[in-house]
Simulated scan of single mutants.
Amino acid sequence: MTLRNGFPAVSDAADQFDIRAALRATTAQDANGNIKTGVSITAKSLTGLVTAGNGMNSDIAAFDAVTNRYGPVWLSNDGTISVKHAAAPSANSRIDLICIKQNETASPASDPTDGPEAIIVTGTPAVDPVTPATPEGALALARVTIPSTATSMTSTGVIYEQMYPFTASAGADLLFRSETEKDAWTPWEGQKCRLLDGNEYQAKSGVWVSLTQTQRIRFDRSGTPSANDEMHLSGAILPVSPAIAVISIVWVNKGAFKAQSWKATTLARMVGWKVIGSAVHSPAAENIVYEHLGKNQFAATGSGEIQYVTPGTIDIFANAWHRGCLIAPVTPS
Rank of each mutant, 00 (worst) to 15 (best):
L293C: 09
A25R: 04
I81E: 07
S210P: 09
A14S: 13
I247S: 09
E117K: 11
N54F: 13
G223F: 01
L267H: 11
M153W: 02
Q162N: 06
I95T: 08
N68A: 06
E200H: 15
I159P: 06
V73N: 05
R69I: 05
D15I: 10
T67E: 01
L175C: 08
E189S: 13
M56R: 04
N54Y: 11
G53N: 04
R94Y: 04
H292I: 12
A86N: 12
L174I: 00
K101H: 05
D12C: 12
W273Q: 09
S155I: 05
V130D: 12
R323T: 15
S148V: 09
A109H: 14
G277R: 05
Y290I: 13
M231C: 15
M163F: 09
A236N: 08
R216K: 15
V209N: 03
D59A: 13
R4Y: 15
E291Y: 11
V250C: 01
E189C: 08
G171Y: 14
A61E: 03
F63A: 04
Q260V: 04
C325K: 04
A170M: 14
T113G: 02
G255A: 14
G55A: 09
S93L: 03
I41H: 10
V280S: 07
A170K: 14
L233R: 08
A299M: 08
A320L: 04
T151E: 01
I276R: 02
T180M: 10
S226G: 05
M163L: 15
W74K: 07
L233K: 04
G312F: 10
Q260S: 14
L97K: 06
G304V: 07
K204E: 14
T310D: 03
L267D: 10
S261H: 11
V289E: 13
K192L: 02
V130C: 01
G235N: 12
T80W: 06
A13M: 15
G206E: 01
R216E: 11
I95M: 05
A184Y: 05
A138P: 04
I314A: 08
N287P: 00
L174Q: 10
F176I: 08
G206N: 08
A106T: 15
V10C: 06
A28Y: 15
V50M: 03
A172S: 15
L75Q: 04
L49I: 12
T301D: 07
E286V: 15
G71P: 07
S90I: 05
I60P: 00
A22N: 11
N68D: 12
G137I: 07
